[in-house]
């Protein structure tokens, strides 16, 4: 089982990113669950969502304690939340950032999702859309396939720029 924890702020689309990732994994023929943790959410507050992907039906409902991958959609959260908590030794971090994680031994990947969204003018209510480009980065990491990512996004959003954003993140991220 591959376990992913997504850190974002309320309104940035972390919950939708989890759902899209589960859908893409499902289109790949895997079992997947997406589970947001709901607290007293409001726009801007740190929020967490979880995704589990497996070849077998998933019977675990508790929160992910030891993620294989941590996604940080807003790196300013790292000042207030220990996003690396419980991360597996062989785990990895995916940052929405134009630069790498400084001074860390962790396996880290980065891609400027915000820049990709802004370049495509993919902005809703003043916030750049991060949940569709991040799917491209996850395809690059091999967690889901790029065709399934595109299918999942097309099924969910009519605006084609969402698929373009995922493709751009796939191309831009180095692994």
């Amino acid at each position: 089982m591959y376990e992913i924890r997504i850190h974002s702020r309320g309104g940035q689309g972390g919950v939708t990113a989890a759902r899209l990732l589960a859908l893409a994994a499902f289109r790949d023929g895997k079992h997947a669950t997406a589970c947001p943790f709901y607290g007293a959410e409001r726009r801007g507050a740190p929020v967490v969502s979880f995704v589990r992907i497996d070849d077998q039906p998933i019977r675990v409902y508790s929160q992910i304690q030891k993620p294989d991958l941590v996604i940080v959609l807003d790196t300013s959260i790292m000042d207030v939340v220990d996003v690396f908590q419980g991360l597996r030794e062989d785990g990895a971090v995916l940052l929405n950032s134009s630069h790498d994680l400084d001074g860390s031994d962790l396996t880290a990947y980065h891609v400027d999702l915000t820049g990709i969204a802004l370049a495509l003018d993919l902005v809703v209510a003043g916030s750049p859309i991060l949940n569709t480009p991040v799917l491209g980065a996850l395809a690059k990491l091999g967690i889901v396939s790029l065709p399934s990512v595109k299918e999942a996004i097309s099924e969910t959003f009519a605006d084609e720029r969402n698929v373009q954003a995922a493709e751009k993140a796939y191309q831009e991220m180095t692994v």
Partner: peptide, 12 residues
């Protein structure tokens, strides 16, 4: 059905 744990979880 369990609130959030099932009501808000996404599965097939």
């Amino acid at each position: 059905l369990d609130g959030f744990t099932l009501s808000h979880i996404t599965q097939s």
